[in-house]
Design a binder for these strands. Structure first.
Lengths: 186, 186
DNA sequence: TGGGTCATGTAACCTGTTACATGATTAG
DNA sequence: CTAATCATGTAACAGGTTACATGACCCA
């Protein structure tokens, strides 16, 4: 999956490992995180597979860099992956894992747990409403609205996802508070 | 994370590796998948850490099994983990990764891509509306509504998540179809 | 007699995380 | 002068996936 993410980015233009890392951080990071070390390792694998090539670029005032470019067979692989039929949703949610076992904790502690989720959602939303971080990528994309459209779809998903999580946490809190009131009434 | 999932299950009662595997499949599977091989490996790690103990149980008509039980220090670890403050959302979404790069494909292919997501959502929802698979776990939980409440919250989240995904895919299709109509009108 | 469930795992591999190392330039 | 940015990576470990192996019992 990360391999194809890297191929996809290189398909927009040649980049160094460092460029890829930054692009990941300010565009794909929300739904796929990647460490620098992993990106450099994957680039070596992609090179071995013949999907990318690299060349040294001497820079003045900055350290030299390796520019990676996608090859024809790399483009074929990218297209094969995009055409592949997906099966299932493959979510992995630490939040749900913890929620599942929260019966061990008191109602008040759990209200606090869900409130913390809501606070995180709020922080995320206010970050989102500010100016977009991925300016340099946007600049390129504006030239080709057919590409930036899909980027915007993933951002839209991110917003909807956080809103849903926020709403869900709210419902959980409400449920817990009703239980608290019932037991106080007796 | 899987370690704590296993500890959490063993906290409800002693189980064999096989029992844990089945419980995972019909309750935690949606937000955390685990292979059998991984569960057996993790159980060995948990044993080394002193969080679980095991004993052989001879069965007639079935192969012998190893019953794993949580220890006091295992319970402490479970509680420590539950009290831990979470940072971030940590989503990993293959669907979004593919969406991000769909500019490579035609509008019609992409409408088909989003329609396939909607079909998967539909299948998921009709499975959910049927009788719950995790009957044996429910039986136990009914005795303690304070525990089953949190399980139901995770199921609720699953439903809301799929609904959001479905709605998002619908909006994407709408957007693509508008573009199609615009270019036909010219 | 063939497939499903129960029950255990090993081996190899791939992917992801954490910590560390190096070193120049530039902005505050 | 100090922290951030640019730029490369290695090493070790943790976590996840795929494939394989074994064997008995039960039901159709």
């Amino acid at each position: 999956m990360l391999k194809h993410g890297i191929l996809g980015l290189l398909n927009y233009g040649s980049m160094s490992g460092y460029d890829i890392m930054r692009t990941f951080k300010n565009s794909l990071d929300f739904f796929w995180t990647a460490q620098t070390s992993q990106i450099y390792r994957e680039l070596q694998t992609l090179k071995k597979k013949g999907w990318v090539t690299d060349q040294n670029v001497v820079q003045s005032g900055k350290p030299d860099k390796k520019l990676f470019s996608i090859t024809e067979s790399g483009k074929e692989e990218l297209n094969r992956w995009l055409a592949e039929e997906d099966t299932g949703f493959e979510t992995r949610s630490p939040i749900m894992m913890k929620t599942f076992f929260r019966g061990e904790k008191s109602i008040d502690e759990n209200i606090e747990f869900f409130s913390r989720i809501q606070r995180s959602c709020g922080e995320f939303m206010s970050e989102m409403s500010g100016p977009p971080k991925n300016i340099s990528m946007y600049e390129q994309a504006v030239k080709n609205p057919m590409i930036s459209m899909y980027w915007k779809m993933t951002i839209k998903y991110g917003v909807m996802y956080i809103q849903t999580l926020n709403e869900w946490a709210g419902q959980c809190i409400k449920e817990l508070e009703e239980i608290k009131n019932e037991s106080t009434d007796d």
